[in-house]
Structures are given as structure tokens and as C-alpha cells.
Amino acid sequence: MSTATTQGALVFERVTKQYGKVVAVNDVSFSIPQGTLVTLLGPSGCGKTSTLRLIAGLEHVSQGRIFIAGQDVTQQSAIERNVSMVFQSYALFPHMTVLENVAYGLEVGGARKADAREQALEGLRLVGLTDYGPRLPSELSGGQQQRVAVARALVLKPQVLLLDEPLSNLDTKLRRRVREEIREIQQRLQLTAVYVTHDQEEALAVSDQIIVMNNQRIAQQGTPRELFDTPADEFVADFICDANRVSGEILGQVAAGKADCRVGGLAVQLANPRAYRGEIRIAVRPDAVNLTPANSQHILVGQVRHAAFLGTEMQYAVESPLGELFVRQTDVQQPLAVGSSVGIGFADHGVCIVGGQA
């Protein structure tokens, strides 16, 4: 047995999934520790849902191995694996009561009706729906239906809980509340969970770790803060935080891991852990761009092309020598006018090197 089986509750070893000549998952490896929630994040078609289906046993690998709790489940069917999935569509039986829906999987698995009912009631208690057992799904809100789907998955006591875009059918405010509830339950029960979403904010809010996928491969894996502060490349920087990607130049190393750089005439000092030299690519988060009314002291000057008020922040599109910059600023009382000239500077945070020649 591979030593990788001791490294996590769920392990992928060089897993590939092909449909004929089409590659859906390409040589993916990762390890998920017991009791953590890991999010598979990426754009449509990147391979995240296919990866989830491989964990569930709904698809079988073309190459590689999958381990759950130290056991090689690569050849096992979905019914043989101790995993539960919460679907995007909820998939509740409309003719069954809430309690019957939650108890259904237990009864199919051979539990006595009385035992299944007792465990289903406990599942509803966990999601705050104790008094909703007699109702039909049609009598519930979208958020309540989603919590029923979570309860149905939880009562099966899975080794791995899978959540496939579980909040995509909910409005923004409800989505935030339900994701907080799911995260609280996961932490309280110390569940190992894999969560699929294309929503960056959602991934940052619920995850212990995030696996960013692109072109059927893993682009980067790390904590939310690691991915936000130190993206591995331009794709991750753009996908995680809408970063502006600009060109710059390294002038020289200051100290170990630090370099003096020039970006559009501006002198900045940036972390350079990969020891890049010469021309580089830099990611600048929208909140790390400082805009002020232009004057003769500014080295870098741009022009506001678009301004949008979003309540707690202003968003700007600024034409500059570096290209168009997307900017977020919290000063909503004195917004910059469209067409005005602005001086451009960078904050001490939110600017990092994401490519170049080592």
C-alpha cells in the first residue's frame, strides 16, 4: 500500500479521467487531512466537478488511484464508498415529507424504520429544522430545502461529505447565511468535506484549503490567505482576486527573497522568492491601487474611464501607461469623476511577482 494513504482522509494519486480523447482531469494529486473542508475552485470546464464525481464513484478513473481513510477505493462503485453528496439541485423527493427525505438513505441502507426516523430527527436538529419534519419540500424556502439536503447527507455519517455548487440556486444574502451554517456544522462535527464552487468569495469564506483548478490540472493549492496574498501565477491572481496583471522589471536583489523593481516608472520593493531576474509579470489587487487627483509630482498618471458606486466602495476603470486598471476604493464620499486625470500609486500590500525568468 502506498505511503500516501497515511497522509490524509482523502488522497488522489496522479488521477486522470478521459472520455475518449477528451481529458476531464489531468494527472491530479492532492491529500486532504481529516476534519478539513477543501474547496475545488475554478472556471467552468476546469475539471472540478469531474474530480468530485471521481471521489463519489460516479465516474471511474482512467489512470491513478483514490484512497479514502487509507483504503484504496479506485475500483469501488459509488454505493461501496462511504461518501455523501449534496447536489446543486437539492434532489429532494417532492411527494415525501422532510423527515421521510432525510430518513430515505438510511432505510435504503437497511436501517430499521424507527432507527432511521430517530437519526433523521437528529439530522434535522443539526441543521436547525427540528419542527419541519412533517412538511413537504414545496412548503420550504430554498435555504430550508438546501439544509434538508445537508441533513440527508449528514445522517449517513460519511467519511467524506461532498458538496457540488450547493448554494448556486440561492440569492446573495441567503447564500451567505447558508454557507456559514454549513461551515459551522462541518467544524462542529469535524467532517472531512470537499466543496465545489466557481465563486471566489464563497471559497475564501468556507475553506481550510483551496485547490484552484485550470485546464483540468491543479494551478495552486493552499490556504485562502496564501492564495490571496501569494498567487502562484497570473491565472490564480486574476481568478482569486481580479488582480491587474502588468509588466515590470527587476533592478536588483535587496536581500534574500526581496528585490527592487520598476513598474511603469514607479520604484517598488517586492518579495521575490523564486529569484526572478529581468522582465517580470506583476499582479496588483484592485484595492492595492491608490488613486489621487493628478499633479506634477506623480510619476504615473491615468484617466478615469468608468466609475461605479457599490454602496461601500467605488469601482473604477482607469486607462494608464500600464494598460487598463481595475480599482476598488473605499472613499465613496468624494468619488473621482469620469474623465478626470489621476495619479497612480501602489500600496505596500497586494502587489506580488507572478511570473518571469528565474
Rank of each mutant, 00 (worst) to 15 (best):
T5I: 12
T6V: 02
Q7N: 08
A9S: 14
K21C: 04
K21Q: 15
D27G: 04
F30Y: 06
I32K: 07
I32W: 10
P33D: 11
T36Y: 08
T39R: 01
P43Y: 07
S44P: 02
S44W: 03
T51S: 07
L54H: 02
H60C: 02
H60K: 13
H60F: 04
V61N: 05
I66P: 06
F67E: 05
I68C: 03
G70Q: 05
R81L: 10
Q88Y: 15
L92S: 03
P94H: 12
V98D: 03
Y104C: 11
Y104R: 08
L106M: 11
A111G: 09
R112S: 15
A120P: 02
E122I: 15
E122A: 14
G123L: 12
L124S: 08
L129G: 01
T130I: 09
D131G: 08
G133Q: 10
R135M: 08
R135N: 05
L136W: 01
L136T: 03
S138T: 10
E139S: 04
L140A: 05
Q144W: 02
Q146W: 04
Q146R: 01
R147L: 15
R152K: 12
A153Q: 01
D164L: 08
P166M: 12
R175T: 04
V178T: 02
R183W: 06
Q186D: 13
Q186A: 03
T192I: 13
H198W: 10
D199I: 12
V206G: 08
D208T: 09
Q209P: 00
I210E: 00
M213Q: 03
N215F: 07
Q216H: 01
A219P: 06
G222Q: 04
R225L: 10
E226P: 00
F228P: 01
T230K: 14
T230P: 05
D233V: 01
D238G: 11
A243F: 02
R245W: 09
R245G: 01
A255S: 14
A256E: 08
A256Q: 06
G257E: 14
K258P: 01
C261H: 12
V263L: 15
V263S: 04
V263T: 06
G264F: 09
G264K: 10
G265E: 11
L266M: 08
L270F: 11
L270N: 05
A271M: 13
R281D: 11
I282V: 13
A283W: 01
V284W: 00
P286F: 04
P286K: 01
P286H: 05
V289T: 05
N290W: 09
L291P: 00
T292S: 15
A294D: 09
N295Y: 08
S296N: 07
Q297C: 11
Q297M: 11
L310Q: 11
Y316V: 06
S320D: 04
G323L: 10
V327P: 09
Q329C: 13
P335N: 13
S340H: 04
F346M: 14
H349F: 05
C352P: 03
G355V: 06
A358S: 14
